[in-house]
Design a protein around this nucleic acid. Sequence first.
RNA 1: GACCCCGUAGCUCAGCUGGAUAGAGCAGCAGCCUUCUAAGCUGCGGGUCGCAGGUUCGAAUCCUGCCGGGGUCGCCA
Length: 585
Amino acid sequence: MNIFDLYQRHLSAVIEDLVAAGRLPAGLDLSRVVVEPPRDAAMGDLATNAAMVLAKGAKTNPRALAELLSEALTAVPGVAGVAVAGPGFINLTLAPGVYRDVMRAVLTDGKDFGRGAADGVPVNVEYVSANPTGPMHVGHGRGAVFGDALANVLAFAGRQVTREYYINDAGGQVDVLARSAFLRYREALGQDIGEIPEGLYPGDYLKPVGAELAARFGDTLEAKPEAEWLPIARDVAIAGMMAMIRDDLAALGIHHDVFFSERTLHGANGGAIKAAIDALTQRGFVYRGRVPPPKGQLPEDWEDREQLLFRATDVGDDIDRPLMKSNGSYTYFAADVAYLENKHARGFRELIYVLGADHGGYVKRLQAVGRAIGGKEMEVIVLLCQLVRLLRDGEPVKMSKRSGDFVTLREVIDEVGRDAVRFMMLFRKNDATLDFDLAKVVEQSKDNPVFYVQYAHARCASVFRQAAEVLPGASMVGEALASHDFSRLNDDSEVEILRRLAQYPRVVQASALSHEPHRVAFYLYELASAFHSLWNKGKDSPQLRFINADDRDLTTARLGLVLAVRSVLASGLAILGVAAPEEMR
RNA sequence: GACCCCGUAGCUCAGCUGGAUAGAGCAGCAGCCUUCUAAGCUGCGGGUCGCAGGUUCGAAUCCUGCCGGGGUCGCCA
């Protein structure tokens, strides 16, 4: 039950009635009309800009139209008061019964309160896609958590979501990986390999791969020429890296539906890439030509030559993009064209890419490919996650990548836990840089948002543990509590909580629509705050405590409120992928 | 040189796709509490929304141009 949607529909009906009665002209554009929470709760429960937006079309002024609308709105069920304010806002005060209906909806719908109707429209969310050449770092972690929470909120809103990971297992870097692994293989055979040469991956994480190669192949690879051992070392190394990455993702509670290998696009005779380029060629998007050299300092080895290009400038990009390298192999971008074509062929018309901020330059060309392949009905949405600064007590954590000895995502998860990582990654807009303080995120105090929100949930659980002792035999489940009379929940703090609960469906909806899961995190913080506030009031005013042994009726009503809060907190935390603990020990 | 992101209270950040007197948490100040619902409570002060134009009934929000901070930009992946 979304009261904002509900009253928006009521409002539309009121307007239609006025049109039918000839008091408003037909053909008004209602698309900009919104029903939202007023800026100040003292103004009422709902506010609409209808009069201001429609005044011009109705050939009147906002205040006059507001008067007309408000007169009609008084007759709408659940409306207890209507007031015109400011430049033409209409503020609605709702009858208390409406919030009781919201409570009942929360209690009976449980986990499904706020869930959008399944629309069956598929959306592909590609996130993480870290190269299989080493462990993930904290920046990958942000994209991983963001993409996962985004997928969750889209699914909650009713979308049919596919979570996808693109494995960059083709090209030169995996050959480097293979050679690095081969070195570790020789090491595992007992040879002295000395320093890891420049240009190879130095990290210890390849030692297990070397050991595996030694265990499976003994010393048989050593005598072979590189052309023979390299594919073997490569496959074993990639498999090892992906296992490690998937394990780290699992530690964050992240599981993709599809792991898509870039290598499968190359295939025999150019495979899918050739086919995709052929298709683009037929539509006139491919030609042989030259690209201008990059501005600024000209690269040393820049060669101006004719090559195979994608006419990206026809579909919104700044420059045409090369599809083939001088050595005759396809560019990374060419594989991306084929991959996007593959997604299109699987029926997706909405593609979301979650990328790191360092891929900002990639946005336009991806969207260009989308347009070239799918035309206007293809929507390519690229969301960039800005950098993460890792701190400890306010001091930057040193990260030297040179030795391969940088702070990995796994180390951070192991130190502070999955919940802290996930919540803090989501407690910021994706396009703002994020300070992640290893010390602060594990503090058990109200200054730590993770703790603050989880603690609110734990307190709810604690109330029920106590209620079971004080009121043995009392019903504690949603279905039963829902039928109770909630009219005695009228303290300011209680009403504030009811208002917050009523906003949840709207927040989730907006979060999905705007691709901003952080809105859910901030909402939960506010709901937790309202709940803690009421809890604290109970310290000074015993009559406001949830459990009053001598007033069973009031206690039951409050248990309904607490269960509703608990339910919404749990629901929101589930979207974020953060645990909702019973207690905080 | 071009492109992307950011710029809101002393600090860290929200601001619900253009609404009303711009909000929260820290820090600061002033009280209360020292526990009964463990990891305190209540209140107060604090803003030229980077700057300058523009769009309109209305701009922190949209457009243009500057300023400042960060990032990216070759056949790498």
